[in-house]
Computed example of a mutant assay.
Amino acid sequence: MSRRGHRPSTGTRDRPRFWGRHAVTAALANPERTVRKVWGTREALAPLSLPPVLPVTFADVADLGRLVPADAPHQGLVAEVEPLEEIWLGDLLDQGRDGQQPLVVLDQVTDPHNVGAILRSAAAFDALGIITQDRHAPPESGAVARAASGALETVPWVRVVNLARALDEIAEASFWRIGLTGHAPRTLGETLGTQRIAIVLGAEGEGMRQNTQAHCDELAKLPISARVESLNVSNAAAVALYAVAAR
């Protein structure tokens, strides 16, 4: 059984609010997620099987719009939740010791929509989990949950204090660490062998920091056309995860 760390108890203001059908229903279906309250239109709530102890408030579309950021596509559902308990990197690596599931390591990727999209791709290609720093990464939020389309509840997300130290631990678990950068001499396909893979991606715009690159076993590029300089980090993650799955 995975060991998890407990976050300090938070007040109501610190609880994220999720919106949208996929994010809210996935949170309700996750036994490790505590949902504190749900708001919704009668139409959106009708098909849901909600615990009788869960506070539910019927609301119209305008009222729901005031609970979330402007123009957030809430689809008639909003939920207030507790953040998931922390997962230790060592426990995640132990869980995947007998398989070939890849890891995704993010170096200061701060955009919640990108992190959410990467979680969704990680779920689609059966990644073991994603690794970020505890700082320079977004917290759980409605924007992350919405972009992840339910994957925030199913893909383990490990936050670490020191990314270089985490990459060392990942190497000790027999992962081949491939950092994606457009300046690499070889393509990702040329660097993929039969070993377990950890894909390392850098921040939007700046790319991987030098120290992060130094803790990769190899650097690789995606074979994209010269007509574009680079891919968005979430698109690059999806392409890389497909390449690992299809090797």
Results as ranks from 00 to 15, higher is better:
Glu86Trp: 13
Leu89His: 10
Leu89Cys: 13
Gly90Tyr: 00
Asp91Leu: 12
Asp91Ala: 14
Asp91Pro: 11
Leu92Ile: 08
Leu92Tyr: 12
Leu93Lys: 12
Gly96Asp: 15
Arg97Cys: 07
Asp98Met: 07
Asp98Tyr: 09
Gly99Phe: 03
Gln100Val: 07
Gln101Asn: 12
Leu103Asp: 01
Val104Ser: 03
Val105Ser: 09
Asp107Ser: 03
Asp107Phe: 00
Gln108His: 15
Val109Met: 11
Val109Phe: 10
Pro112Asn: 10
Gly116Gln: 04
Gly116His: 10
Ala117Met: 01
Ala117Leu: 01
Ala117Pro: 01
Ile118Tyr: 04
Ala124Asn: 11
Ala124Trp: 01
Phe125Asp: 06
Ala127Met: 04
Leu128Ile: 01
Gly129Pro: 05
Gly129His: 02
Ile130Val: 14
Ile130Met: 05
Ile130Arg: 06
Ile131Val: 15
Gln133Gly: 15
Asp134Leu: 11
Arg135His: 09
His136Ser: 14
Ala137Asp: 09
Pro138Tyr: 03
Pro138Phe: 03
Pro139Gly: 07
Val144Gln: 08
Val144Tyr: 05
Val144Asp: 02
Arg146Leu: 14
Arg146Gly: 05
Ala147Val: 02
Ala147Asp: 02
Ala147Pro: 04
Ala148Leu: 10
Ala148Phe: 05
Ser149Trp: 01
Ser149Arg: 12
Gly150Met: 05
Gly150Ile: 02
Leu152His: 12
Thr154Met: 07
Trp157His: 15
Val158Pro: 11
Val160Arg: 00
Val160Ile: 07
Val161Thr: 15
Asn162Asp: 15
Leu163Thr: 11
Leu163Glu: 09
Ala164Cys: 12
Arg165Ser: 08
Arg165Asp: 11
Ala166Glu: 03
Leu167Asp: 01
Ile170Ala: 10
Ala171Val: 01
Glu172Lys: 08
Phe175Met: 00
Phe175Val: 01
Trp176Asp: 05
Ile178Thr: 06
Gly179Ile: 10
Leu180Tyr: 04
His183Glu: 15
Ala184Ile: 07
Ala184Gln: 09
Pro185His: 03
Pro185Gly: 05
Pro185Val: 03
Pro185Ser: 13
Leu188Gln: 11
Gly189Gln: 12
Gly189Thr: 14
Gly193Met: 08
Thr194Leu: 15
Gln195His: 14
Ile197Leu: 01
